[in-house]
Simulated assay, not measured.
Amino acid sequence: MANHRSGRSGVHGRVARRGPGELEGEVLALLWTAGEPRTATWAQEQLGGGLAYSTVVTIMSRLYEKGLLTRVRVGRSYAYLPLMDEAGIAARRMRQVLEQEPDRAAVLASFVSDLSDEDEQTLRHLLERITSAADRGDDEG
Rank of each mutant, 00 (worst) to 15 (best):
A16Y: 02
A90V: 12
Y80P: 11
T55H: 03
V27A: 13
G75F: 01
W32D: 14
L23I: 10
Y78H: 14
T33C: 04
R62P: 02
L83Y: 03
Q44K: 15
Q46W: 04
Q46N: 00
W32M: 10
R73F: 04
L69R: 00
R73C: 06
A79P: 11
P20V: 03
E45N: 11
E45S: 10
V74H: 13
L51W: 10
L83W: 01
D85S: 10
R73L: 11
V56W: 00
G50M: 02
A16F: 00
G88I: 10
T41G: 15
E26M: 08
G35S: 08
P20K: 07
G50W: 03
T41A: 15
S77F: 06
R92E: 11
P37D: 04
A79C: 12
T41I: 13
I89N: 01
R17C: 02
T70A: 14
V72W: 08
L30G: 03
G67W: 07
L69K: 01
L23E: 09
V57M: 11
E26N: 00
R62M: 06
I89Y: 12
L83R: 15
L83A: 13
L30F: 08
L63K: 05
L30Y: 02
L68K: 00
R38T: 05
A91T: 05
G48K: 05
M60W: 03
L83D: 09
V74E: 14
A34Q: 09
A34K: 10
G49A: 05
L31M: 12
A29P: 05
M84N: 05
A90F: 08
G49R: 07
Y80K: 12
T39L: 08
L69A: 05
G19L: 15
W32R: 15
I59S: 09
L31R: 10
A29V: 01
R18Q: 03
G21H: 06
P37C: 01
I59N: 03
W32N: 10
I89P: 04
L69Q: 02
V56S: 04
R38Q: 15
M84A: 11
Y53P: 06
R17Q: 09
A52N: 13
G35A: 02
R17S: 11
A52P: 11
R62K: 15
V57H: 00
G19F: 10
L23F: 01
R38M: 14
V72N: 03
R92W: 12
A79V: 10
Y53Q: 08
L68V: 07
M84F: 07
A43T: 14
E22D: 13
T39V: 06
I59F: 00
A91C: 05
K66E: 15
L47Q: 05
L23H: 04
R62T: 13
T70P: 01
E65D: 15
R38D: 08
A16N: 02
L69C: 06
D85V: 05
L68T: 07
E36R: 15
E65W: 10
G35E: 00
E22K: 07
V74A: 13
E36N: 06
L63E: 06
T33P: 06
L47V: 05
V57R: 13
